[in-house]
Design a protein around this nucleic acid. Structure first.
Lengths: 209, 209, 209, 209
DNA sequence: CATGAATGAGAGTTCATTCAT
DNA sequence: TATGAATGAACTCTCATTCAT
């Protein structure tokens, strides 16, 4: 069983929070089942019956904890989003300059994607199933990237004035690398990939140096 | 009515090609309707009835030309894929070095995404609806990027040895920029974005130059 | 409402057995409705909507108990098959030799066919709708006939060595007589028919005796 | 291509008779295709498109010759019925008494069934698809049997007074034997089966002789 | 006569959601 | 809180038949 961090908090305001220990267990079982189901089959091929039977609870119990299949999906996206961040954030602080930190962060992300392929899929499918949740995730991700870059800029580590577009570009890079080397294939050493891309990010591809 | 380039050719081998002029018109109407429908509502919220009524033909006529809703979607993805390429390819040849060409290509892509938001959505949703078509599209896109980069490397325009990962990174950048500045919002001058990112790609972000 | 003997048992292994009393009632209603519907209109002109509306339940409830229209039909054939046997079997034991028993069995069968015309139709249509169920029914019927005949042969009641073909011949006779005098018309005294045929079976038609 | 005897005549009064040689060829192609299709797949799984494409003619041409799928089926049943009779009838006249003739007839029928399995299936499925055609076929078949038997009775070859029920009984025997040893399996020498059953018919099964 | 595109009623099936127990 | 039967709208797909060319 996968620990679903902070889900109780996440649910405040939406859906229905459990009041007993038994309820807490049922909720957790449903969330784990949903994560597996959505990860494997995608939102539309997943069904509430299948999720409840995976979870070992009755169909009706689903609606004790969630308003709808959609709302479960949204709750899941929020949670996954937090998990990614929790995994990557600590790696960003540490010795060295911003680019070194950024390399550690990317590597951590690639490893995380490889070990949690469902999370990747769920978050990405949100673009079509729960656009708001998708935007919330990628919007704050860009914000964080930009915060780091602007701090580096202030410290003089970066020579070009940082623009929002830099954030989206970097994020796009990371996401596609995660998809290609984390999720779709495991045919590559992730550390190598991280270094390669980090170098490009630092020095560019131009020959005139 | 949007011209659906080469769809007749695309359909060879799958689904059923029309043999009369009337049939050709019906097929085109269906393709245009489907493109609009899928673009607006996404695959799962689109329905065959809705597509046929948009197209002004009877429900049954759909199955005169397509084996299933899925197969129409796949045909559409293939076609959209070709359209993107046909729009961008010519921009890549022209004066200047590879990075200049790359900038023109990115700008063209961003403009195309802004003007053809449905295409963007359809291709991206394919990741979840028709993974093979998605892989075909992004796989060949990466190949083309790498071909260009390797040629530039051979000419000495690039100082680092090009690796497949560079291709995925660049593509990810472009895709997310297209999404952010082409599809989601029109709040930004695309030329500016293209320049900004192209500069980063050439020189990197590092201050040590 | 017709009692559907042993259907609960029959359903074990296929389709879904009800777990509550209410479910049991719904299942029974569906089976009764299906029997009437298939009997009247045949498999292909029967529809699931029509069956459920006859049964007074919602369309969706059908799929709570059956995997498909086909699987209901198969379940029904199995059940009908058992009903015929249950009706005829007791008549076969009793006073007198095998031919006397056989006469009682045929008469019972003819009467049963006349009173349960739907059963007749359903089992026979299975030849085209559910061939395996059809073969199961007629295969075991022949086996039983042959068992009885071989026993009679062992007791010396029969002068010719019994062969499988005798079983199929006798069964064919019975089936067509059931169709003609039980199902298609009621213009004949069944006892008379049974006697007539039984006599033929005992003595043959040849004059040289 | 199978010659479809007398179909032109059969069609008089129903459907539309061809007036040109070309039309005659198209009609024949359709009939042959339909016979194969119905024989293989049964009435309901056969489709008009499939029949026309087997026949190598356009879908629309079907309705140049037939009023409907049903009416084609009926025409086919009538034709098959005649074919069976044409095959069996000559065997019934010849040397020996009625029982000897009857044996030759049964053998001919079994062989015919084995060589023309589609015919068997089509005629039998008529019970559920075109009951009138079915009754016409089996009704006249019984009549013919009874005519032969009554003649034999008049000649003193038969010791029991012949009743209609004898006809149905004999026919049922023959039909099931045809199904079992002609259509379903070819594991048996047909001549042996015919002899066996003929003997039973002459002498009965009783031991007291 | 031949063609094949067009039609649309109708079928079987799915599944999120409700609710009585 | 848990259960699972009941519901019915919605959907995809089939196919006999019509008809303009």
């Amino acid at each position: 069983m996968v620990a679903v961090r902070g889900m109780d908090a996440t649910m405040t305001g939406e859906d229905k929070a459990p009041r007993t220990e038994r309820g807490r267990r049922t909720l957790r079982a449903l969330l784990d089942a949903a994560r597996a189901e959505f990860g494997e089959k995608g939102f539309h091929d997943s069904s509430v019956v299948s999720i409840t039977s995976r979870a070992g609870v009755a169909l009706g119990s689903f609606y004790t904890y969630f308003d709808s299949k959609d709302s479960l999906f949204r709750a899941l996206v929020q949670d996954m989003s937090m998990q990614v961040r929790d995994h990557v954030a600590p790696l960003l602080s540490g010795p060295g300059d911003m680019l070194a930190a950024e390399r550690r962060g990317l590597l951590g992300f690639l490893e995380f994607a490889r070990q949690n392929k469902e999370i990747y899929r769920i978050i990405d499918e949100a673009e079509f199933v729960a656009p708001d949740a998708w935007k919330a995730h990628y919007g704050t991700t860009v914000e964080r990237i930009l915060d780091r870059f602007r701090a580096a800029e202030a410290r003089g580590e970066i020579s070009v004035p940082i623009d929002e577009a830099h954030g989206w570009a970097i994020m796009g890079m990371n996401v596609f690398l995660g998809l290609r080397y984390g999720v779709l294939n495991e045919d590559r050493d992730l550390s190598e990939v991280a270094t390669l891309v980090n170098t490009m990010l630092r020095d560019g591809l131009g020959a005139d140096r």
